[in-house]
Design a protein around this nucleic acid. Structure first.
Length: 563
RNA sequence: CGGGAAAUAGUUCAACUUGGUAGAGCACUUGAUUUGGGAUCAAGAAGUUGCAGGUUCAAAUCCUGUUUUCCCGACCA
């Protein structure tokens, strides 16, 4: 494409409403533009990248035997009522009414519709297995959109669903998808990890996430330095070997003026943080519950929810706190509390510890298990970098990741809720076993830009660069123009998509722009045309050489652009 | 949803404290000189100061409301 007379622009300065490097680069290079919080335009260059990425996904999905289809975005609410997710998605859904006041919503996800589609086909075990997918837009009213395309309210996603007769067969479909995912993310040149994760609102048996490593990642990944253990922190098991055995002393109340936090407490009483217990009060599905963890630990709400089968948990308000104690937030403890108590595993190994006395400015010392009743004990804290790998006991490392894809074994949750059954060989009615596989396509674009850039701009991998090759006309005498025109015509004829910068700009401006938008291969037609030479340079600076004009195509061929 | 900051030309910001003709850099237009890493000089064009109300002779500036955006946190298949 010739740049002159096309919709192309770049910005020299960062914009103020983008918070991430990748977001700013994508905006400055004229690929995307924010319309409202979490809503973006895709401009010509950005759309090219998006389409290339989607085509890679499409190729790999089709190769894996999946069939593409397209689902509507505007959905009647009752589709979600049947599966019970109208309430579990809650505020995240964009809701609207039609002219007859009937309830509709913009689809935040499409499991229900895919099940409805499958019901049309599936009658017998002979109709299974199959895998269907779409690449389409989802709408979620995120509380806090951020980081460019990483967390948006309208976004494109590939979602695929496998349908099988039982779990064993879903396993086959699942590993098939796993292979396809590795192919896809390798082609995008992403540095990523596969981690175990929470099944969350999806429900189901197993969930794995594909996480692109990045400092702006919103997820914390726990990775073993030795074995292949890798997990999202929200489900990483804590195997603590903490234990302290002492002769039990008698509980005693002490005056602790202005002590509010665990750190205050440790400093004031001059004690080991391991001898303190943090008491947290939560409203869990309407019930006020106290949760006990060792003073240096952070609570993992995902684990608590899973333990109780709860949907919603928020920290108690002052009003809610008053229902169970006269104490205030800085002085809570389990002794004589009027609430169920849930304790972390480590609490059982502690003796003579310190906790709040449910009376402002007072704490108990020498508290022991005999001083209160525990309703449930479980692993409910976040793993820390000081903990050991729960599988092999080696050292672990934390990394930040952007969730670019996930895969679920759903089991029969949706097929049972929505009546997707088949007749097996013995004429028995059975629910279909399902798997579900997502990729956040727009999010991948940001992840790639986040991992591949330098101070001058984006460095796209060949696979999704808006154009693989740019041709810079660095001068305006006739011989140069003629040479550049010829090269352009030749390469286009050979099927190579060239971005020809024939603008009436100085060479420096063109170089800067081509670097910013990140075209992987640059051909420069300049002064050396007189000697019969042009320059070939790659954006990553690995190649920078002069070649004979008649050998340009042979050189470009070596990059295997259309392979 | 809680806490904080902000909204002025396409964009990044100034002017607000102490009310009185809204300025600059980048981008844009024209001309000259330049021409391989975001050129220089000169001359221009560009704004209902987010919106609505109020105070005042006079409001970008003070007051009230409202909307939007951003940040920290909560939340988040």
């Amino acid at each position: 494409m010739r740049l002159k007379n096309t919709f192309f622009y770049t910005l020299r300065e960062n914009v103020k409403d983008e918070d991430s490097t990748s977001g700013n680069l994508l905006v400055r290079s004229g690929m995307i533009k924010k319309t409202a919080s979490g809503i973006y335009m895709f401009l010509p260059l950005g759309l090219k990248v998006k389409q290339k990425l989607e085509n890679i996904i499409r190729e790999e999905m089709d190769k894996a035997g999946a069939n593409e289809l397209s689902m509507p975005i505007l959905l009647p609410s009752d589709v979600f009522e049947a599966s019970g997710r109208l309430s579990s998605f809650g505020k995240d859904m964009f809701k609207l009414k039609d002219r007859y006041e009937r309830d509709y919503l913009l689809g935040p996800t499409h499991e229900e519709l895919f099940v409805l589609a499958a019901k049309e086909k599936v009658k017998s075990y002979r109709d299974l297995p199959f895998n269907i997918y779409q690449i389409g837009d989802k709408f979620r009213d995120e509380a806090r959109p951020r980081y460019g395309l990483i967390r948006t309210r309208e976004f494109t996603m590939k979602d695929a669903y496998s349908f099988d007769i039982d779990e064993a067969h879903t396993d086959i479909a699942y590993s098939n998808m796993t292979k396809a995912y590795h192919n896809i993310f390798k082609r995008l040149d992403l540095d990523y990890r596969v981690v175990k994760s929470d099944t969350g609102a999806m429900g189901g048996l197993l969930s794995e996430e594909y996480q692109a490593l990045s400092s702006i990642g919103e997820d914390t990944l726990v990775i073993c330095n030795k074995c292949d253990f890798a997990s999202n922190i929200e489900v990483a098991e804590v195997k603590s070997n903490y234990e302290k055995k002492e002769e039990l002393k008698e509980i005693e109340m002490v005056h602790t003026p202005n002590v509010r936090t665990i750190n205050d407490l440790v400093n004031f009483l001059n004690i080991d943080i391991n001898d303190t217990v943090k008491s947290l009060v939560y409203n869990i599905d309407g019930e006020i519950v106290m949760i006990l963890i060792k003073g240096d630990r952070d609570l993992n709400e995902t684990k608590v929810k899973k333990l109780l089968g709860a949907l919603d948990m928020t920290m108690a308000t002052e009003e809610e706190l008053k229902k169970i104690t006269n104490g205030t937030f800085g002085s809570l403890g389990p002794v004589n509390i009027k609430a169920k108590i849930i304790a972390d595993n480590e609490i059982l190994k502690m003796t003579n510890f310190v906790c709040g006395a449910n009376k402002e400015d007072y704490h108990y010392i020498n508290v022991n298990l005999k001083d209160f009743d525990i309703y449930k004990v479980a692993d409910i804290v976040n793993i820390s970098e000081n903990d050991k790998c729960p599988v092999c006991g080696s050292k672990i490392t934390f990394k930040k990741g952007i969730e670019i894809g996930n895969t679920f074994k759903l089991g029969t949750k949706y097929s049972e809720a929505l009546g997707l059954n088949y007749l097996d060989e013995s004429n028995k009615l059975k629910p279909v076993d399902m798997g579900c596989y997502g990729i956040g396509t727009a999010r991948c674009i940001s992840a790639v830009a986040e991992q591949h850039h330098d101070e001058n701009g984006i460095i796209w991998p060949l696979s999704i660069a808006p154009y693989p090759v740019c041709l810079v006309l660095a001068g305006n005498d006739e011989e140069m123009i003629k040479t550049a025109d010829n090269i352009y015509d030749l390469l286009m004829e050979k099927g190579i998509d060239v971005l020809y910068d024939d603008r009436n700009e100085r060479a420096g401006v063109k170089f800067k722009d081509m670097d910013l938008i990140g075209i992987p291969i640059r051909i420069t037609v300049g002064k050396k045309v007189k000697e019969g030479l042009v320059e070939i340079k790659t954006r990553d600076n690995k190649i920078n050489k002069d070649v004979k004009i008649e050998e340009v195509y042979d050189n470009i061929k070596e990059f295997k652009i259309n392979a």
